[in-house]
């Protein structure tokens, strides 16, 4: 794998374990928009943006792992990444008015969601070597 790998997420649970992170203090939608802009700029998705079996109004957290582009070659938009992120956005857009936001669920439930989100990403994070069980 060439190039640097980064996790874009709004799940604070990662902050202590992931070595390369772009933390978005916002909603799951904000995360996907950021990912979209990065894909438009030539970054490549390494994880599926619609991971997990939950609808946008069922999970307040969203995370994506991308490899950063190595130069300013805009022409190399990764088509598959683009298809995936645009589709994910359209799924989220269809229920934007009832998006589940952070901070509205009881803390224990939100913690469950945060935990689950990290579980789903962990394997990919380990694969790309930016996760440390011991903490960073």
């Amino acid at each position: 794998m060439s190039g640097r790998v980064v996790l874009v997420t709004n799940n604070p649970r990662y902050l202590s374990n992931v070595t390369s992170i772009d933390f978005i203090d916002g909603s799951s939608w904000d995360v996907l928009v950021k990912v979209r802009d990065m894909v438009h700029g030539g970054c490549k998705l390494l994880s599926h943006p619609l991971y997990g079996n939950l609808r946008p109004y069922q999970q307040p957290f969203r995370s994506a792992i991308l490899s950063l582009k190595s130069d300013n070659d805009y022409s190399r938009v990764d088509e598959y990444s683009l298809t995936l992120i645009e589709h994910a956005l359209s799924v989220y857009r269809s229920c934007l008015d009832r998006l589940l936001l952070r901070g509205v669920l009881p803390p224990a439930t939100e913690e469950d969601y945060a935990f689950m989100d990290m579980e789903l990403m962990k394997q990919t994070l380990l694969q790309y070597d930016i996760f440390s069980e011991k903490g960073v």
Binding site: L46, H48, Y51, I65, L120, M121, Q123, T124, Q127
Partner: peptide, 8 residues
């Protein structure tokens, strides 16, 4: 059915 695109 993994999350990682490379795995897919």
């Amino acid at each position: 059915e993994n999350v990682t695109l490379a795995d897919k």
